[in-house]
Structure formats: structure tokens, C-alpha cells
Design a protein around this nucleic acid. Structure first.
Lengths: 154, 154
DNA sequence: ATCGTTATCTTGACTGATTCCAGACAAGGA
DNA sequence: TCCTTGTCTGGAATCAGTCAAGATAACGAT
């Protein structure tokens, strides 16, 4: 219980993977470690970070991420116009803010509390099991940047 | 070139395009007409439908859609895992339900009214200008299909 | 109705993200 | 330890979307 918060414990990462019913292999531990350190990382960032320590194939990372996602260890988010990102914060009802300029993403809790948008007044007969909210705007950094170019209006 | 038929629908579509400050060309009128008939169509569906009448290049459709989107004539939505879709219902604050099985999409109005999710309690310092809500679930058709199990979280 | 300007469209190549495939390989259980 | 099964590697394929250059046509003015 007395672990240093600033340090990522490799052993516990492996345990977490096993706890999800998966084998704790090198690439998996490495990917999950990076993901704890860098929330909302995309495959490319993950690949770069992991390769600083180990050698991994692109395919392995995609594979690992799919296995993690399926096991509920990570959540995959896919903001329009950018490659898929992954985060370790799962199981709660939180949403995202994405910067239109630099693509930075951050977590936000739902404004109204529990899950307001989970109960749309008219669901068109759909059986809804999840609602996803993405807020678009400018991150603190890009707000102060004077040379922000918004050419790609997406 | 004997222009025999002059469709009323086409004329008004052309007017709408001109009203948005764009030239009313063949591909544009055709694309917008299809979009009015088939909401939430993706580029592929649009291309197929338009080509039933005219000859258009893929590029033209992408181009037309970008112009329309920029002009505010259509709205581009991009549900995770599927290509971009377009709709003509713009200017209001409505969201979408997407079927996890067949990808069907439908419009839904926001549960709480105006724009609850536009004002997250904690915006992390982001300057938010738009919020997007996507509900995931099963469409009426896929709910009754028996070749798959439902109710078990995604 | 014709002309000129310039926004649009066509063709065809190209990038980036993600997946498929087949074989080599390693983690865990008997 | 040996086996089975799940993983990882490398390479090629697919799919969505974009870039570029030249041909074409829409719209306003004459």
C-alpha cells in the first residue's frame, strides 16, 4: 500500500494484465505502462514510447490494444479526424474535450451528473447501451497561441 | 442537348446551393438531392446513389461535401469505426444514435433540452465551442435479429 | 447570346491508419 | 519438461481521404 505514486510499478502492471485474464507479455506490460503515463495516446505515440525501451512491431501494439480493449482494461476513443486513442480510465461515465487545433484530449465528467444523455427523450426505438460525449474547442495552450491556424475545419 | 425535363426539386436544390454562396453545378445538386433523400449517408452510399443518374468522380463528391460542410449546408458526423457521414439537418442541437451491428444512424434530440453537455462542470481550461453526443446501441431491426446476442455490454 | 474569370471537376497517384496472413515463438498448464 | 495455445514478426493489402495539375463549366458583365 505504500507505493510511490510517481513511479509506475511494472510488477503491478503485469498483475493487472493477468487479472484481466490475459498473459503478461513484454509488449503488453510495456504498452500498458506507457498508457498509464500518457493518457489518450494514439498508436503512433504508444509505439514511439514503447520502442524507447523495447523492440515491438506495429502489429503487436495494435494487437495488444485490441486485446486490452476487449478485456476492458483500456477504452478506445476515436475523435473525428484523428487516429484512435486509448485510455486506462474505464468503467466510469466520463467524457472528453478535444482541441481542434492540436488534438489534445482531456477527461471531463458529465455536466449533469450521472448520465443525462443516456436517456434521450426519443431514442427512435434503439436499445442504447452507451453514450459518448465529445466536446470540441481550444486547449489552454492553443488559446494563448497567437498563430493558431484553423484551416482544417472538421 | 435537349433539356427535356426540368424538375422542380432540382431547381430548389440548386437555389439552396446558390443561397449558400456556391455555384450550383451538376454534382452538387445531385449530391445534395441524395442527401435530402438519404440522411446520414456516407461517401460510398452517396457516390453510388449519385452515379445512378450522373457521372461523378470520387474526388468531386469529397470536394462537394467539404464545400457544403464549410458553407454550413450539411453537417459531417464521424462515428467511431465508420467512414464519415453527412446530413442536411444543420443549425440545431441534435445528436445521434448509431447501431453497433448495422451502423444505422438516427437523429435524437438532447435529453435535457437546450445543450446540457455544452457546459461541462469542469472543462479543464478548454474553450468549448461545440459538443457532440453519440448514443450507441441496437437499432430496432438488429434487436429482433436472432443471429446475435444482445444485452451483454459491448 | 457571347466572353472572360475563376470556381469546380477529372484523372491518377499517394499518404496514413488499420487489418489480414502465415509462420516463428514464448507463456502457462499437465 | 513437453504441449497447447495464445502472441509476436514482417510484409502486403485494404480502405478512407487528400494532393496536384490541367480541363471544364457556371455566373456576371458586355
Amino acid at each position: 500500500m505504500s507505493e510511490t505514486a510517481s513511479t509506475v510499478d511494472t510488477a503491478s502492471t503485469a498483475d493487472r494484465i493477468r487479472a484481466a485474464g490475459l498473459r503478461a507479455t513484454g509488449p503488453r506490460v510495456a504498452v500498458l505502462d506507457v498508457l498509464y503515463a500518457v493518457p489518450h495516446a494514439d498508436v503512433d505515440a504508444l509505439l514511439t514510447a514503447v520502442r524507447a525501451d523495447t523492440d515491438v512491431s506495429t502489429q503487436a501494439v495494435y494487437d495488444v490494444l485490441r486485446a486490452f480493449t476487449k478485456a476492458g482494461l483500456v477504452r478506445r476513443i476515436e475523435p473525428a479526424g484523428s487516429p484512435a486513442r486509448f485510455e486506462t480510465r474505464v468503467g466510469d461515465n466520463h467524457h472528453h474535450v478535444v482541441c481542434r487545433v492540436c488534438g489534445a484530449a482531456a477527461d471531463v465528467d458529465c455536466a449533469v451528473g450521472a448520465a443525462p444523455c443516456l436517456d434521450p427523450s426519443n431514442d427512435q426505438g434503439f436499445l442504447i447501451d452507451e453514450s459518448e460525449v465529445t466536446h470540441w474547442g481550444l486547449c489552454p495552450t492553443c488559446q494563448t497561441s497567437t498563430h493558431m491556424e484553423r484551416g482544417s475545419g472538421a
